[in-house]
Each structure stands twice: as C-alpha cells, then as structure tokens.
Write a protein that binds this DNA or RNA. Sequence first.
DNA 1: CCAAGTTGTCTATGATACTAGACAACTTGA
DNA 2: TCAAGTTGTCTAGTATCATAGACAACTTGG
Lengths: 243, 243
Amino acid sequence: MSMQDTASSGVALWRLVADGIERGIADGRFAAGDKLPGEMEIAETYRVNRHTVRRALAALAERGLVRAERGSGTYVEAQRLAYPLRSRTRFSEIVGADGREPHGRLIEASDDVATRELARELGLKAGAPLVRIETIRLADRTPICVSTTWLSAELFPGAGNVFAATRSMTKLLEHYGVRDYSRGATRITAGIVDATDAARLDLPLGRPILVVDATDHDLAGKPLVTKHSRFAAERVEFLVENG
Amino acid sequence: MSMQDTASSGVALWRLVADGIERGIADGRFAAGDKLPGEMEIAETYRVNRHTVRRALAALAERGLVRAERGSGTYVEAQRLAYPLRSRTRFSEIVGADGREPHGRLIEASDDVATRELARELGLKAGAPLVRIETIRLADRTPICVSTTWLSAELFPGAGNVFAATRSMTKLLEHYGVRDYSRGATRITAGIVDATDAARLDLPLGRPILVVDATDHDLAGKPLVTKHSRFAAERVEFLVENG
DNA sequence: CCAAGTTGTCTATGATACTAGACAACTTGA
DNA sequence: TCAAGTTGTCTAGTATCATAGACAACTTGG
C-alpha cells in the first residue's frame, strides 16, 4: 500500500485527508473556531501516518482555513458566500448582503469568432465576429469567480472598450440601447480548475469549480450575451429558489 | 521539477492531463466519436512525457470516456445527462427523456437524531428522532447520484419500511396522507467525493461532485423531508430555468 | 507494397510521497 | 511543579510518479 489510496486515483493521500477535513468544515461538522481532533486521532480515522495528516493540515493552513497552535491544537477559520441564482440579482448586491466588499476587474478583452456552440447560443452563424471579455469578481480580497462573456461584434461594436470604461455589463447594454434583459436557462456543472483559472482565482490546482453557462436575452427573446463562469466551489454556495 | 505541477497541489500530473482532456470532452472541444490528438502531441501541449499522457488516457479509457485503437488513434465516447432543476420533475422522467432507463435502490434506512442544522430545516427541535434513508439512482447502469433523506420519525413512523416497500418518496408521503408538496430553496455547491460515496457512485477518489441540499414542504409551507444529494459531476449537467 | 504515423511494451533512473520511529518544544489542567 | 497531550522537527526506508529512450505492432494513405 504505502502511497495512494487503494484505487490509485492520482490524488495524493494528504490531499484526500485535506479534502475530508475541508468537507467537515464546509458542512458544519467543524464550525469556525472549533478545535480539530489531534493529529494522531485524524491519522487513525483516515488510517494514515501522522506526517501525512501534518501535510494535509499544512495545506489547509496555507489557504487560511485552519490555524495550528503549538502544544494546544489546530483550529478552524472559514465560511462560504451564499449566492442566490436569480434572474436579476447583481454580484455586488450578493456580496454586500454578506457584509463584504465586492470588486470586479477586467482581465482582458479581445476579438474572437463564434464556434458552432457559441453561434447557436447567440443566434448567429458559425464564424461570426465576437467580442470576448474576461472578468474576475472578488469579495473583499478573495476571488470568487472568473467569467468569459461573448457578444456579437456587429451588434455591439467596440464593446470591449465600453466595458473597460463602465465596468458593468448592464451599463454596456444600456449604451447600445438595451433597456432591460433577462437571463435564460442556466446550466450548472462542476469540474476541476485548470492552470489559468487557478492562477486567477488564487486556487491550488486540482480544486473543484462550479461552472455556470448562461445566455441573456432581451424582452423579445433575442440572445444578447452568453457567459461561461467558473466559481471557486469552496468559496460559494448557490441558492436556487424554484416554485 | 520532474513530478507534480509547480505548486505541488497533491494531484498527480497524469491526473491533471486526464482532467484537461475530460474538460475538453465535456465542453465540446472534443465531440463524441472525435479522434484525440496523438499521444506525442498531447505530451507537447501539456509539456509532459508521453508515458504520462498514456497513463492519463488509460485512466480515461478505464472509465469508458475514450477508446484507444492501436495504430490509428484514441477516440472519444461520452456525454452528460441533462438534469433540469424544477419543482416537480421526477428523476425517472429526466432519465427517460434522455432515452435511458432509470433505476433506484435503497441502500440503507436507519434511525437518527436531529442535529441543530437538520432540526432547523425540518422545523423540529435538536435531538428530535428522525428516519434517515440512503438511496442511489442510476441511468441505465451508471450511478448518477446518492441521496440522504431525513424525515421526522414522529410524523412518519416506520417511514423506512414504507420506503423500502414503495421505493418512492412521493408514494411514501401519500401513505401518510400528504397529497401534494413542493420543493423549497435548493442549495448547490461542489466538492470532492469521499470514499463511501466514491464506492457507491463507482467513481474514482478525488472526482468532483455536485452537492444539492433541498427541503420539501407541504402546501401550507410546513417542512416534510430534507435531502442531501451528491451527484457525479462528470455525469450530469444541471439546468436551471429562472424567470 | 511502402512510408509515415499511430498505440503498445520494455528497461532504466531520479524525484517525490508515504510510512515509521524518536525526540524536542510548548500548552493545559491537576 | 508535574504529567499528559499537543504541535514541530529530525532521520530513514520503501513504493510510486515522472522522465527518457528504444523498439514492436498496427493502421492508414499514397
């Protein structure tokens, strides 16, 4: 045995232990401020060497989820942002409601051409010129999500510059005469963060992300913009209210 | 360097490559039936040894996502189950609409007591007696999700046995005189599968899961049952339609 | 048939993960 | 003060990960 879990999943043992503890923090088994079990006890419950536990705790400590106190124990400090999935809720409102300060930043804006997928979402032809806008959103100083937004370059000429100036998708659309719009079907799935997003989200490689795809339409149902967002799963919790 | 990514995330290199390719399959860069780039080419794009790529492909092949053909290439075969998040859609309908055959199984039913969290969800007092029902759902023979369901043992005496007999939560509630009910707010987040769920979902350790928490209420708004479900992220895609 | 390109299999080597044991440094409570 | 329990830091040894190179087996297109 020694290294790796029995199935050899490609995930280091210490990582599994770290994930297990993090899960415990996320679902409330260990509340903020709580003292974790001793390293020896954790080692026994996971059937693992104490050094492996220490490595797991070190990883969690580096991310600020726990804090070790010599001679005393290891303590929890963490919590997730509640993120309602509604048609007209703004990121800034959600973060503000959590008592934290929202920030947004433009990473990059560039020209692009529509793939078959994008063309279908936006009601265009494959190969149609698009503007691609890459943004990141933060709560206090913690990155929450990165988004890639596509718009038709013909319907919204110079959209990249307008967004850079206004820093708001709503204002950008207003600039082109779109008064009101609503969100269509939203698709949610999960995956593992890639290297680029990991760097932007300040997330270690291999962490889970929530992937959200959505297209906004005007009141006549015509597609305006389509978005592909990646959320740091450990920092948010989506709330869906359906009726 | 040699092993591990620069940040040493606890995830093996071959696993990162495998995830990268899987991501490509999931988001449509590689469609079902497509031929993947050659092992050498993949090795170059990921800056990795060909043997590492081979290991990644072997892992994907074992999960049935790709199929290698000697002398020719490696080909894709995969797709996700589209899973609408609505108030009254049954799992069996969703799976049936996908042209696959739904199955459900009772893993375990046992007595439990309410934690503070569960009590709050169900409108009970902490320590109140509960029935805990553990179930698994499959499409064809592929496990899609495992769910833990809690009900008040006082409001629904013998619920475990009733469920074992009916195999349906709707029928169980009918048995106790509940004619209609609706789903309240649904909370979605993501995480990494633990050992127990991994075995049940036939999923390698370290894979991402979608975690869904929801409470069903009767028409008067009184909480009936609360559920904690874990979906194999690579096998589903949630669809949220909000308006 | 042949050449180019593909996957399959072997050997070998260095770096890293995990285990194991021992002891130091520190905190807490009796 | 002292004992028990905690985290911090060493030393090793074994298994696995990752790289490197070479060649076999097979498919495809000219």
